[in-house]
Write a protein that binds this DNA or RNA. Structure first.
Length: 565
RNA sequence: GCGCCAGUAGCUCAGUUGGAUAGAGUAUCGGAUUUCUAAUCCGGUGGUCGAGGGUUCAAAUCCUUCCUGGCGCGCCA
């Protein structure tokens, strides 16, 4: 908890007619640090006291008792501005950071609580493309953020490994896959077969019927169908894992839709027993008319189940298995209605945990001239994007720091970091138009900028060469640029909390940009290393604290923080 | 047609949940390094916050109508 806020509240609490919580809620941070450290707006007192807020503020400024760490209370218009003792402030902030180090920003509010996070969840037998980035990265960041708050997280990749398209793939494989059979089967092979199937099916509609039959065989456990499907899945997972490793995205389980196949019948039975299901146009549905929603389809007229059915079964399974306190689905906003329906059905089934399910939606990624589509081959493959980013960074390193060791590793960390940062820095709910130049821009508000700032700090610490100590003269950390920087470092824990509450990893990105801006301004106006040992050791402590915040922040986003670049 | 989301500088986006003078980056123009990595920093140019109406001490933020774009609306996922 922010103990400076507590100090301000305790000065105000018996002097104005508002409950403590309300005072705390109204306290703000002034737009300019020169105005003060905290501000209390006097508008809300205006009505009761029948005075203008300006008058109230200036009266309060005279009557309130100053008490450490507050050193000044000043009225500026309708605001009552509080100034903290700079020395006490920097000392307590930097000492806390020095004590906590890599734990700074962490919290234990989630101790003994479990959060299930469902993210990435691509369809197998297709390549991962740029539009798959958002779910994986946002989900991965949410996983890291909640872990940092002490939650026990379970990351699930709900693979799209079930459905009629696998019937299609089996048909295509059997008919045209001879050049592939017996050899190493890749996602590219599968993708070609998939395209081929759709081309042929236009000429010969009977193929669709054949595919439906094969999918039914798959659902009923036919050995041949099962074996082919298993091959498709293994080939896909192998390629996916390569990309996940590059992106630093981790999963605890790869339980895809097929995993719940055996549970689906029980789920349907249960929904029926609870009197929620009925037949409509030969399909089994849950009527959601009373909730102003279209019905939720459980079973098609050909008896096969649907996505929603499997999602309901999966939710039940996860509840039983993990007994979660929260379940987060990181899935595109085009599925908003789907999740509203699924959550409603779970609620109607009497599960109170349905209220702890959240759909964390995000906007689509598109090209300037329209949607991305695997079928039309209109995609940018993730692997190509990452390779390109790494190559371009490699060239920049060659040009700016040719003597750097581990060039390849650093190029990977920076190139991939740039892609991750670019994707995460836009707030979730905006649609994103994919643009090579934007993702591969390395100047300004970008990942490399943050990493570069970190590397410079590491460089200073390396040159310093001595152990860092928190036993410094804090009075020397009093310049404007220094104070602004320390204040921004102080915000880190609350930023993580806000990011968790709103499921917005972009807040971490924005915050890091802010910290780096403050650091670079500090860096350009003040020298850290000098003959003055007293000043040097104080600034070294600050440099080290900043380095630590950047590293911790990047870690939450899944981005490496190289020490040189 | 109905529902959800978005609209802020030429472009990409912030805006602390209704508060102080709407901010960054990019682009463009100009400037900063004998000293810690110039992937940096400083300054100039750039705004009817999509439009109208309403709510109040105060609206980019809330309510309403409209415009534009995106997505969704029963046998795909």
């Amino acid at each position: 908890m922010d103990y400076f806020i507590k100090d301000i509240v305790s000065i105000l609490k018996n002097k104005i007619d508002l409950p403590e919580d309300e005072i705390k809620r109204q306290l703000e941070i002034p737009p300019d640090f020169k105005m003060g450290d905290y501000a209390f707006p006097c508008y809300s007192l205006s009505k009761a006291l029948k005075k203008s807020p300006n008058v109230i503020a200036s009266e309060l400024a005279k009557t309130l008792h100053i008490r450490s760490p507050v050193v000044e209370i000043k009225a500026t218009g309708p605001y009552l501005n509080f100034f903290l003792d700079k020395v006490i402030f920097s000392e307590s902030v930097l000492k806390k950071m020095w004590d906590e180090r890599e734990r700074y920003g962490r919290n234990n509010i989630g101790a003994d609580k479990t959060v299930v996070v469902d993210y990435s969840s691509p369809n197998i037998a297709k390549h991962l493309a740029v539009h798959h980035l958002r779910s994986a990265l946002i989900g991965g960041a949410i996983y890291n953020i909640y872990s940092a708050l002490g939650y026990n997280c379970v990351g699930i990749n709900h693979l799209g490994d079930w459905g009629t398209q696998f019937g299609q793939l089996i048909v295509a494989y059997k008919k045209w896959g001879s050049e592939v059979i017996g050899k190493f089967c890749t996602v590219t092979d599968l993708n070609n077969l998939y395209v081929k199937f759709h081309q042929e099916a236009e000429k010969d509609p009977a193929l669709e019927e054949e595919a439906r039959e094969w999918f039914k065989r798959l659902e009923t456990g036919d050995v041949e169908a099962r074996k082919l499907w298993q091959n498709f899945k293994e080939a896909s997972l192998k390629e996916f894992q390569k990309i996940y490793d590059m992106l630093g995205v981790h999963f605890d389980a790869f339980t895809g839709e097929s995993f719940y196949n055996t549970m689906v019948e029980d789920t349907i039975l249960e929904i029926k027993q609870k009197g929620l299901a009925r037949l409509s146009e030969q399909a089994l549905i849950v009527d959601l008319e009373p909730y102003n929603m279209p019905p939720c389809l459980l079973r098609k007229k050909d008896e096969t189940t649907l996505y929603a059915t499997r999602d309901i079964a999966a939710a039940e399974y996860r509840s039983k298995t993990y007994n979660f306190d929260k379940m987060i689905y990181v899935v595109g906003s085009e599925q908003k209605l789907h999740f509203k329906q699924v959550f409603k059905v779970l609620e109607l089934m009497g599960y109170n945990w349905a209220n702890y399910c959240v759909h964390v939606d995000f906007g689509l990624m598109k090209f300037k001239d329209g949607k991305m589509s695997t079928r039309k081959g209109k995609v940018v493959l993730l692997e190509d994007l990452l390779t390109e980013a790494v190559e371009r960074i490699g060239k920049i390193i060659e040009e700016k720091n040719p003597s750097l060791e581990n060039k390849d590793t650093v190029a990977k960390e920076v190139g991939i970091g740039a892609v991750i940062f670019a994707d995460l820095s836009t707030k979730r709910n905006k649609d994103v138009i994919f643009n090579w130049d934007e993702v591969l821009n390395f100047e300004g508000e970008t990942g490399p900028y943050v990493q570069y700032t970190h590397a410079r700090l590491c460089s200073i610490l390396r040159k310093y060469g001595k152990p860092v100590t928190a036993d410094v003269n804090f009075k020397l950390l009093n310049e404007d640029e220094t104070v602004v920087l320390i204040k921004s470092l102080w915000q880190f824990p609350s930023v993580i909390l806000r990011a968790a509450e709103s499921y917005e990893s972009a807040l971490i990105c924005n915050y890091l940009i802010d910290v780096c801006g403050n650091l670079n301004r500090f860096y350009n106006t003040h020298r850290v290393l000098s003959d003055n040992e007293e000043i040097t050791s104080a600034r070294i402590l600050l440099a080290d604290a900043t380095r630590q915040v950047i590293k911790n922040g990047l870690g939450l986003l899944g981005i490496h923080a190289p020490e040189q670049m």
